[in-house]
Design a binder for these strands. Sequence first.
DNA 1: TCTCCATGTTCAC
DNA 2: TGAACCTGGAGAT
Length: 331
Amino acid sequence: MPEGHSVHRIARQFDRNFVGRTVSASSPQGRFAEGAALLSGREATAARAVGKQMFLAFEDDLWLRVHLGLYGAWDFAGEILVDPTIASANGRMGQTNQRGTDLAPILDDAGENSLSSIGAPRRTRVHVRMSEQTQGLGEDGDEWPPPVVGQVRLRLLTETTCADLRGPTACVLQTPDEVAATIAKLGPDPLVDDPAEGEERFTAVVRRKPTSIALLLMDQSVVGGIGNVYRAELLFRARLNPHTPGREVPEEIVRQIWRDWVRLLAIGVETGQMMTMDDLDPAAYRLAMANRDDRHWVYRRAGLPCRVCGTAIVLEELAARKLYWCPRCQA
DNA sequence: TCTCCATGTTCAC
DNA sequence: TGAACCTGGAGAT
């Protein structure tokens, strides 16, 4: 599942490519047919991400709320204008159209959070139309709009850009009041809330809970956007035992975790990758970036030696999710 | 072709 | 606390 960084990238993609444009909406799969009919023909007016939720506003105060859940993904096709605040990890941002505008790079790696497909990692279809002169056909002869492949819950189409939504946990229309109620239930998000205020909210909640810090970090009402990968990595970086009750975690460590999340989220949004070993030396960093299976301190490293102490990384189940940690560094 | 798996949430018990 | 939901890739058969 895309953690918070991906959802912010998606929102920025929508902001750049859909906001201000009239959208044609459909539900090829049929499960969002009524909603798509209501959206179709309206202009998109805003795109926002809060935690793992994305909100897309349309004319007449109609909001689309999407949560990708475990399997969801957006595939973008067509002419994709890249938000200048996000980049591909390998820097392949070179394609430009005849107006000199950046187009989407081809995949940054195995599809993880590339600009063309954002969500659950999967093989990606990339269609990049180079200019309006080629409207109707992509440069390589692709159809326009692209043929529907698989279970597409919602297709949003402008004259130049196509976004296909697959497998979301939530895809619903909301009123402004409902959007506000949804957001009110979420914990602070460093890219939405003032980071200093967020730190205070996060610290106050964690410090009064008997629940383990590992569960609290995954609780979206405590902090927005953290998922299983960032949880494991944040706890390792803090050298904190995942089972420590929140109220027993020293305040300075709680604040350190928040500030680390602020930092990692910013890196994730910028690069599209959950790089958590940013404090490596440059050579080791480049190596880690090149190999997505070797990019974390503990996540998916069960049984492998800890990168710091050599102790075997432990894998256990906590609330039906896999938890990776080093029993020595995080004793 | 079948089974398992995954970066998640919600609901019933 | 555990099951259901959801989708497609990967590996086993």
